[in-house]
Amino acid sequence: MNSSDKILALPQLQEQLNEWRAQGQKIVFTNGCFDLLHLGHVDYLEKARQLGDKLVLGLNTDASISRIKGPSRPLQDEMSRARVMASLLYIDAVVLFNENTPLELIKMVQPDILVKGDDYSVEQIVGHEIVMAKGGEVKTVPLVKGYSTTNIVRKIESTQKNPE
Rank of each mutant, 00 (worst) to 15 (best):
M1K: 11
N2E: 11
S4P: 00
S4V: 13
K6V: 03
I7S: 01
I7G: 00
L10K: 09
P11R: 09
Q12H: 12
E15Q: 14
N18E: 15
R21V: 03
R21P: 03
I27K: 06
T30D: 00
N31I: 01
F34M: 07
L37A: 04
L39F: 14
L39T: 04
G40F: 11
Y44M: 06
Y44L: 06
K47F: 14
R49E: 11
G52P: 09
K54Q: 13
L55V: 14
L57E: 03
G58Y: 11
N60A: 13
I65W: 02
S66F: 04
R67P: 09
I68F: 08
S72L: 14
R73Y: 14
L75M: 12
D77W: 10
M79H: 12
S80W: 13
R81D: 09
M85Q: 12
M85D: 09
M85S: 14
S87I: 02
Y90K: 07
D92M: 02
V95H: 03
V95D: 05
L96D: 01
F97N: 05
N98K: 13
M108R: 12
I113C: 13
L114D: 00
G117D: 14
D118F: 02
D118Q: 05
Y120T: 02
Y120G: 03
G127A: 02
E129F: 00
E129H: 07
E129I: 01
I130G: 00
V141Q: 09
G146D: 06
Y147D: 07
S148N: 02
T150L: 12
T150H: 13
T150W: 13
R154S: 14
I156R: 12
E157T: 10
S158Q: 12
K161V: 09
